[in-house]
Design a protein around this nucleic acid. Structure first.
Lengths: 257, 257
DNA sequence: TGGTTTTGTTGCATATAGAGAAACAACAGT
DNA sequence: ACTGTTGTTTCTCTATATGCAACAAAACCA
């Protein structure tokens, strides 16, 4: 494969380090040397030395309590830089706030990265019961409203890749039929929004609309998420209108007319 | 030096990669290969290959417009993990919100990292005029209210190091005399808070108080920041009381009694 | 407490992968 | 079209990252 050749060109020790960093997750925020060694298939001593280097630059640190490694504050510094210079981030904050006030549900902005949906920005609603999401969290694109919007406006190759990877059935409503998915995406593009009901999590509904940049390209999705009891069929039209309107406001600020 | 020996043990190509990542900043969010090469003193070809590896894992990406590199979304993913598992982050959000509502100024939580103050969490006020801060932003500790609080409760070696690094005069009010600084820190520890007036930025005042963990150790600082016209001497006592109270609330949630 | 297992860090020898020099390629600007 | 600048690639050689194994250090458990 040509791809393997290219991979081989990469600096392997750096690649190891980055793979180690990326192996941390919400579910497993703490890692031991031996865990990393076995899960990534990297020699124990290599991991040990790599971690020492990562720690020396503040990318990880050893929790003195548990004696396991956690991601360090250097990462937080870097993420601040990412945010402060991502235009959509700056423009969206206040508009999201207003949307959340108006609808009363959590809203977020997301983009596609590496064939996944990643949440860039979130504003929580005030309800005690709310759906947990997190900035930086990644989800599959075919079963979230944001993801489906982003897929609908992306090129076919991406959709092919996603389908090829496989459509896992998370709930009874998850779309797992490639033909149905493609038809659904086409529909979304015609409608300019989508409503998802329990496609990735039981009891969670959401509505999403596209955000455009100055050249009319869809660069992000704006979505609201909430318990299905609150985002019911009869409220969808009103909510949808507001979501589309907010998404358009952001689009305008991004230079779209 | 013993230290140099230890540094030599680190994987050099990984260290290069991390230094490259850390060289990005709010002021310079975009970098070219040759910039990095000269500023870090790393060979051009080495930088090129390192960047290719970083890009392959999503830690940087090449902006197609400017053809320069920017930090990538992998970093955002990782920062989400840092946040969601940092206890103080979870506990502070709502308390900060209330404080901001009550006082009407921007508030943030910060900690010391690598002899610098780093902002972990921020809640903006609603005033159109507000002080710009950013999560992940780093500042010197001796001329910010948060930093001074954190210094006041830290061990002397840290204070020595900070003084040894040099006290740069940012404004006419910056404390640059080591003796005065030490006396000031002592005072802060007695008072349990500090008020800073234009010590790092002209026209910006702030008030900070310490946050304790379950063993009574100061682990963070809570501060409000605003234009000096709004945080005036006559309002300081009232604001201070609220800041201290909010900091104590967070301390309590961290297990401090 | 002592012995056993698990885990992380070191030496060391080897193979290899990364650094550097320079040539090449790809642009941008004039 | 011609410079000047920038990024990638080729090649060689040495430095270095790797894996093994031995060691050290905790944790586990009885």
């Amino acid at each position: 494969m040509v791809n393997e050749k290219q991979e081989d060109q990469h600096l392997s020790s750096v690649k190891n380090a980055l793979r180690i960093l990326r192996s941390f997750s919400m579910e497993e925020p703490e890692k031991k040397i031996s865990d990393l060694s076995t899960s990534l298939g990297i020699n124990k001593s290599t991991v040990s030395r790599t971690m020492a280097t990562l720690a020396s630059e503040g990318f990880v640190y050893k929790d003195p309590e548990t004696r396991k490694y956690r991601l360090g504050l250097s990462i937080l510094s870097l993420s601040g830089i990412v945010n402060s210079h991502m235009d959509i981030y700056k423009e969206s904050q206040s508009i999201l706030n207003r949307l959340v006030e108006s609808i009363g549900e959590t809203a977020h902005i997301s983009v596609l990265d590496n064939d996944e949906v990643i949440y860039l920005l979130k504003v929580d609603c005030h309800h005690p019961v709310r759906v947990l999401t997190n900035v930086g969290k990644r989800n599959p694109p075919y079963c979230t409203s944001s993801g489906k919007v982003l897929l609908a406006y992306s090129d076919d190759q991406l959709v092919d890749r996603v389908i090829k990877k496989g459509l896992t059935k998370y709930t009874k409503s998850t779309i797992t039929d490639p033909v149905k998915l493609r038809a659904h995406l086409k529909q979304i593009k015609e409608n300019g929004y989508t409503f998802s009901s329990e496609e990735i999590l039981e009891g969670v509904n959401s509505i999403a609309a596209p955000v455009y940049d100055y050249r009319g390209k869809v660069i992000a999705a704006l979505a609201i998420v909430g318990p299905k009891q609150r985002i019911q069929a009869n409220k969808v039209p009103g909510y949808t209108k507001k979501v589309i309107q907010a998404a358009m406001e952001i689009s305008n600020r991004m230079g779209y007319w």
